[in-house]
Amino acid sequence: MSLVVRLRSAVCLLGRFPALAGVDLDVAAGETVLLSGGNGAGKTTLLRLLAGLIPLERGEGTVLGVDLGADRRSHRRRIGLVGPETGCYDDLTVRENLEFASRAAGVGADAVDESMAAFDLGRLADVRHGRLSTGQRRRLALAAALARRPELFLLDEPHAGLDAPARSQLDRVLRETAADGRAVLIASHELDLVRPVADREVVLVNGQAAGVLPEGSPQAPAASQPSQPSQPTETPETPGIPEPPGRST
């Protein structure tokens, strides 16, 4: 199966602080990967690195066949990124925001209707973003990513703020996305919600990929183990995952 994401010893700096300190990661087409780890572990930074929003300081990184060290812009059109904020405009309606996202990505208008239907936004089509509730905004952000018909989804806490029906909609979309052969990376603290839709889980600790669940996963690269000798400590959110020697963060 072709690799959509390939990182080797990836290092990213936020100022002088190494937010990612040598991450190895492979994600194949059609695979859904959960990125877990505590606050400050580097989950969001890793997603932003893959999206090309922050530079790769050292190491190797390839996303959708594009070398991040040489070019961190040309693959963006093929990515659907949902971050902590919606990325939408308050004075545009739901439909207008989706149309802008899809047209910018060079996708046809039918993607707008499909994404609205996927997240049940039809009755809100003419409501401006600024008048939506938090959960409705979250659904719009997810729909905007879907309307771009990306080959790779990068989702940061996608379940946050969603009610039960919306979570079911999201899970259905994630399963359909994987079935279409597209890859999904989900950074989340809500492990119980994401694990059912994920093929495997990569745990980040202090900017390093500290382990992979399930162990021996066929997609789990050997290089995903920590580069330094690990201590048999456990993180509260990821019991059983070894943590590398601590760095103060």
Partner: peptide, 11 residues
């Protein structure tokens, strides 16, 4: 609303 990142990601 993080629209600048969305603009960068727009392609």
């Amino acid at each position: 609303n993080g629209a600048r990142d969305a603009l960068r990601m727009s392609g």
